[in-house]
Design a protein around this nucleic acid. Sequence first.
DNA 1: GAGGTAATGTTATCTTATAGCAAATATGCC
DNA 2: GGCATATTTGCTATAAGATAACATTACCTC
Lengths: 163, 163
Amino acid sequence: MTPSPISIDSSPSDTGQALAQAETLCQERGVRLTDLRRRVLEIIWSHSKPMGAYAILDVLRDDGRQGAPPTVYRALDFLLEQGLIHRLASLNVYAGCCQPDSRHGGQFLICRDCGQVNEMNSPAVENLLGAEAAARRFEVLTQMVEVLGRCPDCQRGTLSDVG
Amino acid sequence: MTPSPISIDSSPSDTGQALAQAETLCQERGVRLTDLRRRVLEIIWSHSKPMGAYAILDVLRDDGRQGAPPTVYRALDFLLEQGLIHRLASLNVYAGCCQPDSRHGGQFLICRDCGQVNEMNSPAVENLLGAEAAARRFEVLTQMVEVLGRCPDCQRGTLSDVG
DNA sequence: GAGGTAATGTTATCTTATAGCAAATATGCC
DNA sequence: GGCATATTTGCTATAAGATAACATTACCTC
Ligand SMILES: [Zn+2]
Ligand SMILES: [Zn+2]
Ligand SMILES: [Zn+2]
Ligand SMILES: [Zn+2]
């Protein structure tokens, strides 16, 4: 019923919800969420930490599916275009987007110790960044914000590196 | 005398100033700005756009200097540690820091069309990001902000892609 | 100059990402 | 269904970015 109050991990239900919403969005937009693309999105969501392209490829191969790097990169390109995932440039990893219905670059809190990533998407930050850019006569297309630090859990115990 | 009001490019004097300041900072800190490290910093500053590691390596080789990737990556690591340059993760390039005396992650306006990069470093943005992170009980170590868009020049004419 | 530390040279390798073309699959029309 | 079309996927090769490991050289102190 009620979602667990502290969700460190992407639970199966999170994954399910994300997939369902992706399905809906793709239908609305008239684009095809193929088996491969859906599976890549599922792999990303069902892991606790954002994944690199080659880690995703490994899972696909464990599935028994054929594939080479272009296979996964093309799926990632599609998911990125549709705003269903983000790329964290500082880590070369890909993470599911929590609000795929509204386009945004993404603001992320990345834990140095356990690797967890939290998508912030503070409108205040977005607006201020836009204002500062505008003050410099700069036309904004996309914003990328990545904050590296320590998550609440890793501050508490030193249960670092939970894998 | 007066610095040019619109500085699209890093002028030789900018480069000279940056090198002089780097020299001073490294002396104060008791670290060695060797020939190689100084030259890499100079190469970065004397180019109009941020450069990739292998582009820097090419220039080093044009100098007649020996070198392989580790040569330039070690120099870059040193310059990054000392806060003399930044890495723009979204582009895999390195850019000189305008305020190397104060440590910061860096906030960048990156022009999609001409590739120019402008370091913003708005304290307001930094503070707000810090506050938003703190509200989520997240301990900030470093912030990285990269805003992709179009610089004033590229909005005016469509003198895009000035190379 | 001997000894220790820091920096650089050198080779090989690893990770991340893309180009290019062929085969397969979905879609739309007759 | 049969066929033309465009999209998607398979597959090989390769580009681009970054690091590991170890040998050599420069620098500093005694
Ligand atoms: Zn998002
Ligand atoms: Zn953590
Ligand atoms: Zn800076
Ligand atoms: Zn521009």
